[in-house]
Design a protein around this nucleic acid. Structure first.
Lengths: 166, 166
DNA sequence: TTGGAAAGTCAACAAGACTGCCCTAAAAGG
DNA sequence: CCTTTTAGGGCAGTCTTGTTGACTTTCCAA
């Protein structure tokens, strides 16, 4: 029934400026909800979102290098370094000198780090699960399609790499 | 690990932890793309995202009060005030004393403000349009459903109010 | 072997969020 | 009428997280 093709005499109502504007606002408000729960947890531990992001991706790909993490997060190495230093000092992250290349540092979560990761992840997944459940599987598929199409190409590359793990 | 909600025979594959994790990462990467184009424009004008958000909602609802804008943006008045002051000084926003209630300030974009708004909006809509077009109308509907379900209730209220305008 | 590039660290600064406190003007309620 | 509340603003100070610039260590290639 649903004609997805944008061919010929299609009106493409979903591409009106008004529709696009609503999409923009939906992203803005949804992202606030998306970060609200982890933010509350992080505050208790005296950390910020930057710490959460680092912890997330170190957990996702244990042993990744600082340079890789920088390119995934899209920040400067100086910016990441401050965050990483506090996490290492607090014993949540371990930084091991690389094997082949001693300039590199491979990053791992300690047991305490994994514990915080789990707490944060559980809260965020809870919100996500509720939204997914409310919207249903079809909506979720669409949600993911639009988000993927919105990414910058190099970010999409990072996203794909993580996707292929399981 | 966490309960996958697989009651009875239902598999609900889209609610697995792995699926939820991918959704979380998709939000992260997509939001970066979402803000990238406006960020570049704002930098030229020596403004930040906070200015963009203020301009967006003043354009959306001309004459709205400072208090309303504060609650929509979810920031403190001190935080908003700094941003608003520079926009007023630079002649992008006009602040008029309220009619019924002279304590209130009604905010409007000047011509210059509307011009910048248009430039920012055009860039962001362009990205949105490309994503929508690539994903198709069905996906867009799902996208919006999931985002709405992800909002905090009071943010969703603000979103709905803006939605009903046209 | 030497010189450049790459990985990472340290120092200083800026934007933008926050709190707390003080202030004015206007509205609202006893 | 007088007190309290509300809308808005100013100023000081803090925190997170981004930025550049300058530096060391390590690797690699001319």
């Amino acid at each position: 029934m649903a004609e997805t093709g944008a061919s010929g005499g299609e009106t493409l109502l979903f591409l009106t400026d008004e529709q696009l504007r609503k999409g923009i606002e939906a992203m803005f408000f949804a992202y606030r909800g998306f970060t609200a729960d982890p933010d509350r947890i992080l505050e208790k531990h005296n950390y910020g979102r930057a710490h959460h992001r680092a912890i997330h991706f170190i957990n996702r790909e244990p042993g990744l290098t600082v340079t890789t993490l920088i390119s995934v997060l899209g920040v400067t190495k100086q910016s990441l370094n401050r965050v990483l230093r506090t996490l290492i000092e607090d014993g949540l992250v371990e930084s091991r000198v690389g094997n082949r290349d001693k300039r590199e540092r491979n990053l791992y979560l300690t047991e305490a780090g994994a514990e915080l990761e789990h707490e944060l992840s559980k809260a965020q997944r809870g919100r996500m699960r509720a939204a997914y459940r409310a919207a249903g599987p079809q909506a979720v598929a669409g949600f993911r399609q639009v988000l993927e199409a919105m990414m910058d190409p190099d970010l999409h590359r990072h996203y794909q790499m993580l996707k292929d793990e399981a």
